[in-house]
Design a protein around this nucleic acid. Structure first.
Lengths: 123, 123
DNA sequence: AAAGAATGACTACGGGTGTAAAATAAACTA
DNA sequence: TAGTTTATTTTACACCCGTAGTCATTCTTT
């Protein structure tokens, strides 16, 4: 998939990924109103756009639609990663920036190393 | 600074950062036409927008303007880093994605570790 | 069933972005 | 210096995004 998820849309995807179950819009309306200050309409618009883009889908429809994501968070991250590297001019530059800003700690680095040693299965 | 640099604009900044000297638009027109397939007008538009945003500046003006960047690549990277982490849900997740995709190698990781050891001055 | 509340669909609008044509100005060449 | 080539500015336009108003529909609750 290479449809774009906008920042605002992402907030919705995140909730869907987190909850791991079909959600009615009303299930996260409140949260988004609180965390993002969104108007009810705004949330509905974003949900509609995600639906139009084929990124979420209502599971059957009696009455109120319950949505599920059609891509996993991992898929999203892996695909975004590429765009980000493009923007930063390489993984190493980005990693260095993260280290310099103190967002990637030495323990994190150890973990990455371990991840390597184990051929890539750790979390 | 917290003016946004769009993806297209970034291509221009990158050339300016790379060349380390004042450049005429014609100096990179060809490259961008080749690598991005841009029309001459497009490049000019982007240059104008960068100028309007105060991100580049012509050095004196006899005849053809020669531009220099007003922010360094490091400044840019450091400021963007935050937005990226936001999007990826943390530095570690992002780093893991990079490793998984094979964009951050074990040697890179060693370098990061070294960077740490030396209190942050390596390149 | 009627009134009121919740829900969802449709419409809108201003700003940014990618893309470029058209118009204008400046520089070069014969 | 006129004619031509090159550079710069102006204008355009469609699409995406954040944001939300409004209208229509569907529950609820008397």
């Amino acid at each position: 998939m290479d449809v774009k998820i906008s920042d605002a849309e992402l907030a919705i995807m995140r909730i869907l990924w987190r909850e791991q179950r079909p959600l009615k819009v009303s299930d996260f309306l409140g949260e988004l109103e609180f965390t993002k200050g969104w108007n009810r309409s705004t949330t509905h618009t974003l949900v509609a756009r995600l639906r139009d883009k084929g990124l979420i889908e209502p599971t059957e429809r009696y009455g109120v639609a319950r949505y599920v994501p059609l891509i996993t968070e991992d898929d999203f991250i892996l695909s975004e990663e590429k765009a980000v590297l493009e923007k930063f001019g390489g993984a190493k530059k980005l990693a260095l920036a993260m280290v310099r800003n103190g967002h990637l700690t030495d323990t994190d680095i150890d973990d990455l190393r371990d991840f390597f040693r184990m051929g890539g299965e750790a979390k």
